[in-house]
Amino acid sequence: MGRTVVARASEIPPGGCRLILVNGEGIGVFNVAGNFYAVRNACPHQGGPLCLGEVTGTTQSDDPAEVRWVRAGEIVRCPWHNWEFDILTGRALFNPNRRVKTYPVTLEAEQGEDGSRPSDGDALVVVVEA
């Protein structure tokens, strides 16, 4: 495991995703309503580029005559077969035992190359442990 500084937090807007490559492995870093999550860019189904999929919500229903739209922005659908994954946990919605790998993400104060704080002081960077 190593630390990778992905971007300034402000560079990944809510609903957005930044792709990075760590040791040859693709990872998508998502901003879901101000919280950041890192998900492996490979669907556990057939290896499709999951993080290129649509970020969306999902449905719930207790009665076939009614459908509710829930969890807007928390779900990504693989671009190949449209499997739904919970960005927050990496679990497939149809079966929580089917998971995509997730990585810890932290927000840290930005540091200059010499370790000093930059002049704007309060900028945050997104750091993935992968």
């Binding site: 229903s61 449209n82 739904e84 497939a92 149809f94």
Partner: peptide, 15 residues
């Protein structure tokens, strides 16, 4: 197909 478009039949609680 259900694994792909489960969202279209959310009343189903199993495959």
């Amino acid at each position: 197909d259900w694994r792909s478009v489960r969202w279209s039949v959310p009343w189903l609680k199993r495959p």
